[in-house]
Design a binder for these strands. Structure first.
Lengths: 189, 189
DNA sequence: ATCCCTTTTTGACTTTAGTCAATGGATTTG
DNA sequence: CAAATCCATTGACTAAAGTCAAAAAGGGAT
């Protein structure tokens, strides 16, 4: 089990000595998702948190035949630390591997339990929730205030790894436009 | 100081006996905002939480001469319980009274301190944060997936008090469309 | 390399929202 | 009461994204 990455990500936010990390890491297990497999399907399995140890996933909702992508998760991202309360209520939410992925996963309850014991983990959890809220808040503003072209350029400037790894019709679903429109935006840009 | 409303709102979420509520309510003070006055201007004063005891406000960002409304706060709403971390970073955020308002306010730090003493208040705070996140998540989805007309109809069905109390050009700013377009949507609906 | 399948691009056309300017209503102010 | 102001509506036109269909470009697999 490769744990360097998650250790690095945790240490960006909290201090965590090797011994504590050892204890912590024992509670994870590794999951491999093939391309197209689901981490969450129709709201189920939302009672886990997951860490993307490699690969890329998309979170989307299907409605009347159309798919709307709310988020991508790339290598180094945590999933479900704050999304799960919302996910539980939404029975059409799915998180799907766009390519082969390796996840480190832990039941949500186990994390909650650990948080009770560790002040550091509690810090991490609340930091992450605030982080996610702020991110969503800014995404909302861009969707409200930016044109499709401006949103595409923002993505290109701030999340180029997504543009590079993801088929363009997914990018279009994420931007809220049709693939043909995205193609034309790219041409004139 | 009229406290029935806030007591009722708190009791929707947590149990709170009269004695505890007495202690709690002493820490609030009342503020009156005239029409057009600001509760938060350019990110300042975001270190307070506020309860709308009467009236209605709009939260918006100004960019290149245009205003984009992210939210309305109506009688019975709390402001800043989870928005403040985001607000601190956004120097163009404003919350303005659309009509005369009465607010009950408390410094954020004082609430934090109280939360340390009361298990109930801690519950309330985390419930509120989760609530706000879910709400924003669903607003994001509607903005991504719905047409302007569908968003207007959603607002009409779920938040009629906003439609009734707010000038239509504000509704348009909230829906992300021009006032003329909203007028035409209303006509054909 | 060829074939098959998926994704992207292009073209012609339709639909929808934006823009600008004018009108009409309602409310306030002198 | 009239004038002024603010807001909502309407009309004519422009700009932008959606739709549908076809062609072109990639990407594996054999």
């Amino acid at each position: 089990m490769q744990l360097d990455l998650i250790k690095k990500e945790l240490r960006k936010v909290i201090s965590l000595d090797d011994e504590m990390f050892q204890d912590f890491s024992k509670l994870f297990r590794t999951i491999r998702l093939e391309k197209g497999e689901f981490w969450i399907k129709d709201g189920r399995r939302s009672n886990y948190i997951g860490f993307v140890n490699g690969g890329i996933l998309r979170q989307y909702v299907q409605q009347e035949g159309e798919e709307f992508i709310q988020n991508f998760y790339v290598t180094g991202d945590f999933m479900g630390l704050s999304a799960s309360p919302a996910a539980e209520r939404n029975k059409t939410l799915r998180i799907q591997a766009i390519e082969v992925c390796e996840l480190l996963v832990m039941p949500y309850e186990r994390l909650q339990c650990l948080i009770g014991f560790s002040r550091n983990l509690e810090q991490f959890s609340s930091h992450w929730q605030a982080q996610k809220y702020t991110e969503l808040d800014q995404m909302y503003f861009r969707l409200l205030a930016y044109t499709p072209e401006q949103r595409y350029k923002w993505l290109l400037a701030h999340k180029p790894e997504i543009i590079n790894q993801v088929p363009q019709y997914y990018i279009a679903q994420y931007l809220g436009i049709k693939p043909e429109t995205l193609s034309r935006i790219k041409k004139r840009a």
